[in-house]
Design a protein around this nucleic acid. Structure first.
Lengths: 194, 194
DNA sequence: TGTACATCAGTGAACGCGCGTTCACTGATGTAC
DNA sequence: TGTACATCAGTGAACGCGCGTTCACTGATGTAC
C-alpha cells in the first residue's frame, strides 16, 4: 500500500533531518512519488506528523517490550538504559514520539489509565510488581512512572540544548539522576538480616 | 540605543509567537525599523536568538533572586512554584531560556561551576545551606540542582506536548513529583524527639 | 567660524529559495449489464 | 465476451506566501584643520 511507502519515506526523512526538516516535498522525493500523492493518504502535513508520532511511540513500545530482565528492579535499570539509548541513537524519532503535540489523544490520566499507551502500561506493571514484592512504597505507580519519564525527558532536552560539555558527561549525570529517582521510590530495609 | 529597541521588540514577538514564529521581519516591524536595521546590531538571526536566550535566563535569574524565604527548604518549595509559574505565564521566554541550543557557552559542568549561570548558583547555595544544616545528604549540590531542574523541565515539556488532560491536572502532578524529588535528597531523621 | 571629509545607523528594493497546498488532469482498474 | 461507465491513485504545473539575506544607497553626525 502506498500509505506505508509514504510513511516509511517520512520516517527516513525524519531520522535524517528531524521534525523541522521534514517537508512534504522531501518525503515525496524519498518515496519516488509526486508531492501530491501524500494527499491521497493523509489529510495534510499534520496528519502525517500524527502518524509519525504513533510510529515513534510504536518503536519505543517495541524497545520496552524487548527488555528481558525478570526482576522488576533490574527491569527498571534496563529501562532507563533503553530510554537513554533511544534518545541518543534515534534522536528525531524520540522527538516525534515524545515532543510532538498530541492531537488530543493519549493524555494523562484517562488515556494512560485506559492502557492506551502500551509502553507506560508495561512500566506500571513492573512498578506494581515491585510494590507487591515490598520493594516499592505506596505512591501510585502512575505517578512514579511519570516522574521517571519526565526526569529522563528533562535530562535529554538539556542535552539537546547543548547544556552538557560532552555526551559522556551527559550520560553520567543521566544515570546518576535516574538511578537516584528509582531508589527514592523504593523501600530501604531498616535493618539487614545477618 | 537601537540595539535595545530591537531586543525589546524581539522579546515582544517571542512572547506572542514563540521561537518558531520569531522572524527578522516581524521584529523589525515591531521596532518600527526596516528589517535590515537588525544587521547593524546583530550578526544574523541566530545572534539575535542567542541574545534572547540570555534575556530569558536573566528574567529567570531575577525571579529566582526575588524569592524571599530564609529557610533553605522553604526557599526550595518557593523555587519550584516560581519555575512552574514562569513556565505557564511566560512559556515562550521559558523556551528561549532553557531550550534554545546554547552556543557552546554555558555548559555543564565548567560554566556552571564557574558561576556563569546565576540562577543555578543561587540554587546550589541554598542546597549547600540545607546540607550544612544537616537536612540534606551528601550528593553534590550540582547534581541535586540539575535533577530538580531536569524533572521540572521534563514535566513542562510533557505538558507542552499536550500530555495532560488539563492544566490543573498538570500542576498537581508537577507539585507531587517535584516535592518528592526534594524530599528524596533530604535526610529523614531516624527517630523524632518526643 | 567654515569647509572637507570620514563614519556609520538606517533604508528600500530585490534575490533566490522552499514551503504547503490548489487545481484540472491522466490513465489504469474494477464493475454492471 | 464485449462495451460503457465509475472509481480513484497518482501527476504536473502553478499559486501565493514568507523567509533570511545581498546590495548599493542616503543622510545625519562628528572630526580635522
Amino acid at each position: 500500500m502506498t500509505r506505508d511507502t509514504i510513511l516509511a519515506a517520512a520516517r527516513a526523512v525524519l531520522d535524517r533531518e528531524g521534525v523541522p526538516g521534514l517537508t512534504v516535498r522531501k518525503v515525496a522525493a524519498r518515496a519516488k512519488l509526486s508531492p501530491m500523492a501524500m494527499y491521497r493518504h493523509f489529510a495534510d502535513k499534520s496528519a502525517l506528523l500524527d502518524a509519525l508520532m504513533d510510529d515513534g511511540l510504536a518503536t519505543w513500545g517495541k524497545i520496552v517490550s524487548s527488555i528481558s530482565a525478570q526482576d522488576p528492579m533490574a527491569w527498571m535499570e534496563e529501562l532507563i538504559e533503553a530510554y537513554l539509548n533511544f534518545a541518543l541513537t534515534k534522536p528525531h524519532r524520540f522527538d516525534a514520539a515524545f515532543l510532538l503535540p498530541a492531537p488530543s489523544a493519549r493524555q494523562f490520566p484517562d488515556d494512560f489509565a485506559a492502557g492506551r499507551s502500551p509502553a507506560l502500561m508495561m512500566i506500571i506493571l513492573r512498578i506494581d510488581q515491585a510494590k507487591s514484592n515490598g520493594r516499592f512504597g505506596n505512591e501510585p505507580a502512575l505517578d512514579i512512572a511519570l516522574s521517571l519519564v519526565a526526569l529522563g525527558q528533562g535530562m535529554v532536552s538539556m542535552h539537546r540544548a547543548n547544556r552538557f560539555s560532552s555526551e559522556a558527561q551527559f550520560k553520567a549525570i543521566y544515570r546518576t539522576a535516574l538511578h537516584h529517582c528509582i531508589e527514592s521510590y523504593s523501600v530501604k530495609p531498616l535493618r539487614r538480616e545477618k
